[in-house]
């Protein structure tokens, strides 16, 4: 009985640990190993070469692509943060009945459980040359020719990022806000703070953990994205993951793997910087 008790946690955690070992740790290790392999048009050849990295890091295209991806991530982060924070702030402090709070929160989260690819497609009739946006603007007489930049541009890429990922900001920030002791707000009010001062000096600092968690989600997803970029830019914009996908389709596996390793290092560095703000284990 007692022996079983000491072993129980290990038995209970084994299935989960095995999945992570086989489908996370070993695959990432494989990427690292293959990134040093040699290759030709037909196959990959075990070797230990630095060539894949050298070619990658000396190409200006690589640097431009990384810069473009970081730019997408930064713009998306800023927009999702501002919108997400405002939505969470409204839900947490201005919706008074708990039922309404739950209902409105659900309204915000339901799209998360539907298909991202479909949600991207659904922007096409909206943004296209003859889409709803252009038709409306023309009918209002605001423009005389359809705006070309609405679809298949960096604009539509960022728009869809914001559409898909603002939720990742709303949920953790809302969670942080709901934990704020309401008497702190009253104290701020009593001490003569305006609503705006309370927001900036009391609420915002207390939401830091939620903001950090949301930021980690948004930034890592955008840094590793290629579906949205490929679909919404119509092939006009680049991203690191798209570059990898292209190398994969040319069967240049080691080149893709080397790029993957560098992307992973960049993403982990960004996350490490954000983790300094928050202890995730405390947030659960």
């Amino acid at each position: 009985m007692n022996r079983f008790k000491n072993w129980a946690p290990y038995l209970q955690v084994t299935p989960l640990a095995l999945v992570f070992l086989v489908f996370l740790v070993i695959p990432i290790a494989t990427i690292v190993v293959v990134s040093f392999f040699d290759y030709n048009t037909a196959q990959i050849i075990p070797a230990f070469l630095r060539q894949n990295y050298e070619e990658l890091l000396t190409s200006p295209v690589t640097w431009q692509t990384y810069l473009q991806t970081v730019e997408f991530a930064a713009i998306t982060w800023l927009l999702t943060f501002v919108i997400g924070f405002t939505i969470a702030y409204f839900l947490a402090f201005y919706v008074r009945s708990t039922t309404w709070q739950t209902v409105l929160f659900l309204v915000c989260t339901i799209p998360f459980w539907t298909s991202n690819v479909i949600r991207m497609i659904s922007w096409i009739p909206f943004l296209g040359r003859n889409g709803l946006a252009n038709m409306t603007l023309m009918q209002l007489g605001l423009i005389h020719q359809p705006l070309e930049f609405l679809l298949y541009s960096n604009f539509s890429v960022v728009l869809v990022y914001v559409h898909l990922y603002t939720l990742f900001m709303v949920v953790p920030i809302f969670n942080s806000m709901m934990r704020i002791d309401r008497s702190l707000l009253e104290a701020a009010l009593d001490a003569g703070a305006s609503g705006w001062q309370t927001l900036v000096n009391v609420i915002l600092p207390l939401c830091k953990p939620g903001i950090a968690i949301g930021s980690i989600f948004v930034v890592t997803i955008v840094m590793g994205d290629f579906v949205t970029v490929r679909m919404m830019s119509g092939g006009l914009s680049a991203s690191v993951a798209l570059m990898m996908a292209n190398a994969m389709s040319l069967l240049q596996y080691p080149a893709a793997a080397a790029n993957a390793v560098i992307l992973l290092i960049v993403v982990l560095m960004i996350v490490a910087a954000m983790m300094r703000v928050v202890d995730i284990r405390k947030e659960l």
């Binding site: 989960l16 996370l24 070993i26 695959p27 990427i31 890592t220 840094m223 590793g224 793997a257």
Partner: peptide, 19 residues
């Protein structure tokens, strides 16, 4: 590992398992 599994970009997991 669980946190890493969330933050490692999906495309890398896909690529790794594929390789």
């Amino acid at each position: 590992l669980a946190i890493a599994s969330l933050i490692v970009p999906s495309i890398l997991i896909s690529l790794g398992i594929g390789l």
